[in-house]
Amino acid sequence: MTRIGTSDLDVFPLSLGGNVFGWTADRDTSFAVLDAFVDGGGDFIDTADSYSAWVPGNTGGESETIIGEWLAARRPRDVVVATKVSQHPVFRGLAAANVRRAAEASLGRLGVDVIDLYYAHFDDESVPLEETVAAFGALVSDGLVRHVAVSNYTADRIREWVGIARRLGVAEPVAIQPHYNLVHRNDVEETIIPVAQEFGLGLVPYYSLASGFLTGKYRSTDAAGHSSPRAAGAAKYATDHGLRVIDALQQVGDAHGASITATALAWLRAQPTVVAPIASARTVDQVPDLLAGARLELAPDEIELLSRVSEWTPTTA
Rank of each mutant, 00 (worst) to 15 (best):
R3T: 14
I4K: 03
V11S: 02
F12E: 04
P13C: 08
S15K: 08
N19D: 06
V20N: 13
G22C: 12
D26P: 10
R27M: 08
R27A: 09
R27K: 14
R27Y: 07
T29E: 15
T29H: 07
S30Q: 11
F31P: 01
F31L: 03
V33Y: 01
L34Y: 02
L34F: 06
A36E: 13
F37Q: 04
G41Y: 11
G42F: 01
D46Y: 01
N58H: 13
G61Y: 01
T65P: 06
I66R: 05
G68L: 05
E69S: 13
A72H: 07
R74L: 13
R75G: 15
P76W: 11
A82D: 00
A82V: 12
V85Q: 12
V85I: 08
P89Q: 09
F91N: 10
R92N: 04
G93E: 11
V99W: 00
R101K: 14
A103D: 03
A105R: 10
A105I: 02
A105Y: 01
L110D: 00
F122Y: 14
S126I: 09
V127Y: 03
V127N: 07
P128F: 08
L129M: 14
L129H: 04
L129Y: 04
T132E: 10
V133K: 00
A135Q: 00
F136I: 02
G137D: 00
G137I: 02
L139M: 12
H147V: 05
S151A: 13
I158N: 01
E160T: 10
I164L: 06
G169I: 04
V170G: 02
A171E: 07
Q177Y: 02
H184A: 15
R185G: 09
V188C: 13
E190R: 15
T191V: 08
V195G: 04
Y207F: 15
Y207Q: 09
S208D: 04
L209A: 02
A210F: 11
A210D: 04
S211K: 14
T215W: 07
T215P: 13
R219D: 11
S220F: 07
T221V: 12
A223Y: 02
S228M: 10
A234H: 06
A235H: 10
A235N: 08
K236H: 08
Y237T: 04
T239D: 11
T239M: 10
H241C: 06
V245A: 11
Q250K: 12
Q251F: 14
V252N: 06
G257L: 10
S259H: 07
I260W: 01
T263D: 14
T263R: 01
L265E: 03
L268I: 12
R269W: 00
P272E: 11
V275Y: 02
A276I: 06
A276M: 14
P277Y: 02
S280G: 13
A281Q: 08
T283M: 11
V284Y: 01
V287K: 00
E302L: 06
L305W: 03
L305M: 13
E311N: 06
T313V: 15
T315R: 15
